[in-house]
Amino acid sequence: MSHMEPTAVIPPLAGTASATHASVSRRALLMRRLKPYLYLLPAIVLLIIWMYRPLLYTCYLAFQKWGMVPGTEPTFVGFDNFTRLFRTDSFVHSIGNTVFYTVGLLPFSIVIPLILAVVTDGMKGKSKNFYRAIFFIPMILAPVSVGAIWRWLFHPSNGLVNNLLLKLNVVDRPIAFFSDAQWAKWIILFITGWKMIGFAVLMFSSALTGINREYYEAASIDGAGKFRVFIRITAPLVSPMVLFMLTMSILFASQWTFAYIDMLTAGGPYGSSTNVYYEMYKNAFANMNVGFSSAAALVFFVVFGLIALGLNALSRKLSFYDN
């Protein structure tokens, strides 16, 4: 470790100051000690104002009843909001949907992209880059544009998807994709997944590119089959990336679906496509039930925090690294 520690030792320049300038150099020394904090100040102050102050305030609101109406004061209700969480059907239902979205997204964030990355990896530079650039397009589009386009494609009476299904005689009546409880959440899952694939392909591709080619050469000299090579070499060496994508996917799936839930179904029909984050939003800004929303936010902050810790521990334990 070659870290210089200017806060602990007097740096070379300050050493030229003589004893008569003791007070000056003491001030300089103080400045040096303070310097790291000064550089960090803007970031930390902003984080406190916009992240940690509100987080604490949410903790406070979780024990209150409040409708966010100007001029009204929150009233203390103890653990009421927390007990109500698990007695409210719509909320319990949204937990089930959250699990559905989280698990359902894994094929889109891991399985399909891994296959695509492996297939493109063996190709020449040009076609490889072309495919990857195309796959990536959905990723850079903003969620509202994406939501609008898919809303049109899946339109219940005039959308292209229904048009084609009718023409091909797959169905005899158009499907109301967004207001049919059987379809709504699948459509939202599909759109979220469609947007994710390109990013995941890119991440897996870069992990594959990082694998030393000599392993493959050695394996082919030893006469190992393709499948064996994948299981013995490729899979272990991309496993850190798989775990990374798994973590991202599990932690953020519910956030990524939020925009499409809001734009396409507003959580309906009958709460069949909502998730916990959308319920928090709806309770705070539509039902004016801030305490309930805050309690939910806190519970799931802790739940996702524990999941993150677990996954982090798992990735330390299981990952193989190419050293």
Binding site: L47, M51, P54, Y57, T58, M68, M280, S293
Partner: peptide, 21 residues
């Protein structure tokens, strides 16, 4: 730790206080 923890705070957990502010 503060920086890493921030990563886990969902926006829904701070939206109401930030909105009031």
């Amino acid at each position: 730790s503060i920086l890493s923890l921030t990563w886990l705070i969902p926006y829904q957990a701070v939206m109401v206080p930030n909105y009031s502010l």
